[in-house]
Structure formats: C-alpha cells, structure tokens
Design a protein around this nucleic acid. Structure first.
Lengths: 143, 143
DNA sequence: GTGGCAGATGCAATCAATGGCACTTACATC
DNA sequence: GATGTAAGTGCCATTGATTGCATCTGCCAC
C-alpha cells in the first residue's frame, strides 16, 4: 500500500472525507521527514494547489492530530511545528541556547509513564515530548 | 523582606528597572496562587492602573520568565498560562478529557534529568513540566 | 538636585491562529 | 449514474501574541 493510500484509508476509517487538499497537506508533512511549521506546510501545498486556505491547513492538521497521524510541538519561541508520526515514537531534546534538536529514544520515558500509572492511575500521553535545556556544546558557553 | 521588595531586588540585580507596571504585573501573578492567562493578568492589573498595554504585560512576563520568577505553560487547547515559581518546583498532570490539573512532585523527574545528563550531557530544564494524559476518573469514560 | 542614557512603555501595525457561515463536494445509498 | 447529506472548504472577521518605533522614565554618577 502506498503512503497515500494508507493515509486515505486512515481518514476513511475515522469517518472523514478524502479531499485533494487533505491529501496534499498530509503528504507534505509525511514526506518532509522532520518538523514543519504550519506556514511552511501552507507554502508547500500551494506549489501544487495555489488556492488552499490557511484555515484548511490548520483544520486538517488538527484532525490529523486527533487521529495520531501527526503531532504538534511547541519548539520554543515562535511557531508550533508539525511532524509525521511514524512507527517509532520518540522525543526531542531542544537546546534553548543554540536551538539544536536531538532525538531521544522512547525508552527514557517508559519508566515515568508506568510510575504515573501506578501512583496516580494517570495514563500519560508520553508519545512525543519536547524537553528544553542546554546541550553539551552550550553548557560551557552559558556560564 | 516583603514580597514586593524581594521582587524589586531581583529585577534590579538583573539590571532591569522597577516600574509601577512591572510591580503590578508581577504582584498579580505572585498572589494569584495558581495559573493565570495573560489576559487575566491584564484585566487584574487594569483594576489598579487602567492604561497598561497588553504588550507591556507580555514583555514583562517574558523577561520575568528569563529570570525564573514565573513560568509559562501551555495548558492544552488555548491560552498559555503563567504561574509564580515559588521555592517548590513541581509539575502538572493535565487530563485532556476533563481538564483537571494535578500537581506532581519534583522527584518524579529527577531521575530523568540525571539520566539525560549522564547519557547525553544534556542539562534539561525540568523545573516545570506539563504532562498530558487521561486522569483516573476519565480512563473508564474514554473507552 | 541635575543630567544622561539604557531600559521600559504605549501605540499602531502585523502575523498567527481560530471560528462563523454560506457554498461546495465526497461518498454511501439507491 | 442520480440523489441526499454530512463533512470539508474558502472567505471574512476576530482574537491572541508580538514587533517597530517614538517617547518617556528609573536610576546611577556627578
């Protein structure tokens, strides 16, 4: 099954319609292979379909987020960024000094998730976490 | 030392000026004893000083955040919320179903912070974390 | 107390993000 | 293939958040 067919099936299974705008928006995020801001996505989509409205992009991304196709992360200062959720759940370490983003394996937060469940019966969404701090390269510089 | 004097001293030590606007804004957050949205703060401050601009509130909160006097948390859907940072570092469990916010002791994330430092030499800012998920009351309802 | 200046403020403009509403369209059913 | 309808889209207005800039003001040095 191609990426596009798979995306379409997911939408249909959720009772949503498959429209050209949605397919463009979701393909754009899927094949970017990283983080994109909403405005980057809008720009990208308009290359092939010029009159797509910004609100359509936001609404599509919002519903895709509910379906866990993408996630939205506040990467610090400005715009929120969107990213395709592949099979690999992972987290990010974001340096607030140089802005570098490092991926972090899911295993680091497994323990926390199960502790929260045991102690508080709280089922945490720890699929994708952004952890801010200072990276090894910047620790020296800051002091 | 009163709260106000302490706040003023912190500002001065950081090379910032102590203005009536800043004192009102920071006192408002400090004595709210919880989370406030930027617009709630603006409203509150205008009770005693009607012509404070929204941009002043945002700028003051932004610089106070750098000084670690307050922190800013995305509590889910809409506005960001601000909270005074007391001596007690703590985290929040936020239920995405009912919106309930539970405080979580700092100890839960200590382990993660030291692991990140060991494995990645990454100095994480784990002073205040918002963890989304489903609370015990809502786990049943969601299914 | 006066003067100078870096930092802070207020205003206006701007951008991101969202919601209302009328129109359009995908798609299930016949 | 034609039809009905609920979901999706585009446009417009609005709100939240931020920035540029001219003016103002704490506050330090004298």
């Amino acid at each position: 099954m191609s990426c596009e067919t798979e995306t379409a099936t997911t939408l249909k299974d959720a009772g949503q319609k498959v429209t050209p705008q949605r397919m463009l928006i979701l393909s754009s995020v899927r094949h970017a292979g990283g983080h994109l801001t909403a405005s980057q996505i809008l720009e990208e989509v308009r290359h092939s379909y010029p009159y797509v409205d910004a609100s359509t992009v936001y609404r599509t991304l919002a519903s895709a987020r509910v379906l866990k196709l993408v996630n939205e992360t506040n990467m610090g200062s400005d715009d929120n960024q969107f990213e395709w959720i592949g099979k690999e759940r992972h987290h990010h370490l974001i340096c607030r000094s140089c802005g570098e983003v490092t991926s972090l394996d899911n295993s680091y937060l497994d323990g926390l998730a199960s502790t929260l469940l045991e102690d508080h019966r709280f089922q945490a969404d720890l699929d994708h976490f952004a952890i801010f701090g200072v990276c090894k390269g910047c620790v020296g510089k800051e002091r």
